[in-house]
Nucleic acid binder design. Structure first.
Length: 495
RNA sequence: GGCGCCAUCGUCUAGGGGACCAGGACGGAGCCCUCUCAAGGCUCAAACCGGGGUUCGAAUCCCCGUGGCGCUACCA
């Protein structure tokens, strides 16, 4: 256990769009840092030149920013341990490798990839676990390999003892013992001079004074290797916490074929960052037996490593949807209005309002609509259809069949009569409030000997061209007398 | 195959020897409310992977099985 100041890091490799599990990890890191007054550092593990994706860094940063996870050190912001890109820290790794060789903990290996492939194939045939056979561990073997290698540069391998065991201590899982004989002589420095993760991670975590390493459980099998490298280099061990994976509905690790696997996709689908943060923070961590909706501040206040779940969890999108809807209802009207306006002002093809709705949208007007709509949608873009008729200057275009519905399908004249009476009543309403409107139209229904629901549905379709819409009288109050009357008139003429 | 991790309702989880005929939430079913749709309220169905121990007592501790997942690269 360490009592160093808390310094945690997220160390993604820029090989594609950051995975949602990476972001969940980032949340845990960030929470621990904020809770303890420690530092959250972002370090880019770009040591694999073959898999490098130029846009990945941008996406990593965008994901973190969208979730509100600010990093104290790293790209953009700098910090005392610059640079934060491993590709710019090569001398450090080279020196560490040199030291390990000098101390007998590592050795140069000249074996060609071809030989290694053959070796592993043979081992598989013999039903042996594939592992490096240690040819270059000895002076003679190395010389022979070097002769075959031509002018190839060697790699540096870690010298894993053949006997004994290595104990790894994980904060939530306890002590895990590995037999050294089962561990491989891992490559530390590749022939291109770049380090592998196994070397870069201990060097940088030590160099950057990282106190807690929170990473996914897929790293557990290589944890003993890392422990031995830390020891061989004389570094103090950080606290390790291996988090359980996030699974798809079929229990395999969440991946492309499960649909969205990046928080950016959730952003683009109209989820709220608050909801995604809350949901991810509660996937693999819990406060107690009740808490579901929890603010960022409460998260920080209560977060502890020991409540991290050991078992993998399935990403339950239904629950995220519910949570998103909760946040839409919980958040200040103004914030939701602003968020919604962003969506509505987009071109229609990108989920915005039809082009005849005038941009920019009026903020105050939208804010009045929000309370009516927020109860009825789960995602931001869903609001578009539920809101469009509030903004259309030329009215809506209900089709007659929709207007009549089942109730008046065989009684068109009755519908027409009711609507024209509604038109008259609307014109006469004193004080255009939803209370006054409701009183007036309930009265009309009574006078006409009609079921209120039948009358209201007729009016609803006339005013919105929809059978599912926000409450009728609040809607009329907002669109105003003039437009209401006009739309009723159009509907009467339609029949 | 070898090694490792994990195991409570369909899902996320609470629980960590007696408070548990196992609690909450999502989803599902039903009822109520109701101008549509929602939201809300109430109710219901739904789980301790199996077997052995330890113990007066096990969801909880131990062992074995089984199952799921991961790792087994000059990827991270």
């Amino acid at each position: 256990m360490t009592n160093r100041p808390v310094r945690v890091r997220l160390a993604p490799s820029p090989t594609g769009t950051p995975h949602i599990g990476t972001m969940r990890q980032a949340i845990f890191d960030w929470l621990l840092a904020r809770k303890t007054g420690g530092k959250f550092v972002l370090r880019i593990e770009d040591t694999d030149r073959n898999r490098f994706v130029p846009t990945a860094l941008e996406e990593i940063e965008a994901s973190l920013r969208w979730l509100g996870l600010n990093w104290d050190e790293g790209p953009e912001v700098g910090g005392p341990h610059e640079p934060y890109f491993q590709s710019e820290r090569l001398p450090l790794y080279k020196e560490a490798a040199r030291k390990l060789i000098a101390d007998g903990h590592a050795y140069e290996c000249y074996c060609t990839p071809e030989r290694l492939d053959q070796m592993r194939a043979r081992q598989r045939e013999l039903k042996e676990p594939p592992h490096y056979d240690g040819r270059c561990r000895t002076e003679e073997g190395r010389a022979a390999a070097k002769a075959e290698a031509g002018d190839r540069r060697p790699v540096v391998r870690f010298f894993m003892p053949d006997e004994g065991e290595t104990v790894v201590s994980d904060f939530v899982r306890g002590e895990i013992t590995f037999e050294n004989a089962r561990l491989d002589d891992a490559v530390l420095l590749k022939s291109d001079g770049f380090p592998t993760y196994h070397l870069a991670m201990p060097v940088d975590d030590h160099e950057m004074e990282i106190s807690h390493v929170i990473r996914n459980e897929e790293w557990l099998p290589s944890a003993p290797l890392h422990r031995r490298i830390f020891d061989a280099l004389g570094y103090e061990l950080p606290v390790f916490v291996h988090t359980a994976s996030i699974l798809g509905p079929d229990r395999s690790k969440l991946s492309k074929r499960h649909g969205a696997q990046s928080v950016l996709e959730y952003r683009d689908a109209g989820y709220l960052p608050e909801a995604v943060f809350n949901f991810l923070g509660l996937l693999g961590w819990s406060l107690d037996d009740k808490t579901e909706i929890i603010s960022r501040e409460e998260f920080i206040q209560h977060f502890t490593l020991d409540r991290i779940q050991k078992s993998p969890g399935i990403f339950n999108i239904e629950k995220l949807n519910w949570m998103n809807a909760e946040y839409m209802r919980l958040m200040p009207v103004e914030r939701l209005a602003a968020l919604l306006i962003e969506w509505l002002e987009r071109p229609e093809s990108e989920g915005g309002l039809p082009s005849n709705a005038a941009r920019p949208l009026d903020f105050d007007y939208t804010a009045r609509i929000v309370p009516l709509v927020r109860e009825r949608v789960k995602l931001l873009p869903e609001a578009r259809d539920m809101m469009a008729f509030f903004y259309l200057p030329d009215g809506v275009e209900p089709d007659p069949a929709q207007l009549l519905g089942k109730t008046f399908r065989d009684n068109r004249s009755r519908a027409q009569l009711l609507l024209s009476e509604a038109l008259v009543a609307a014109d006469q309403v004193e004080g255009w409030s939803h209370e006054a409107l409701e009183a007036a139209f309930r009265d009309l229904a009574t006078r006409m000997d009609a079921k209120p629901g039948d009358l209201f549905m007729l009016m609803r379709v006339a005013l919105t061209a929809r059978t599912v819409a926000p409450p009728l009288f609040e809607t009329m109050e907002i669109i105003g007398k003039e437009r209401s009357v006009e739309r009723l008139r159009v509907a009467v003429n339609l029949l």
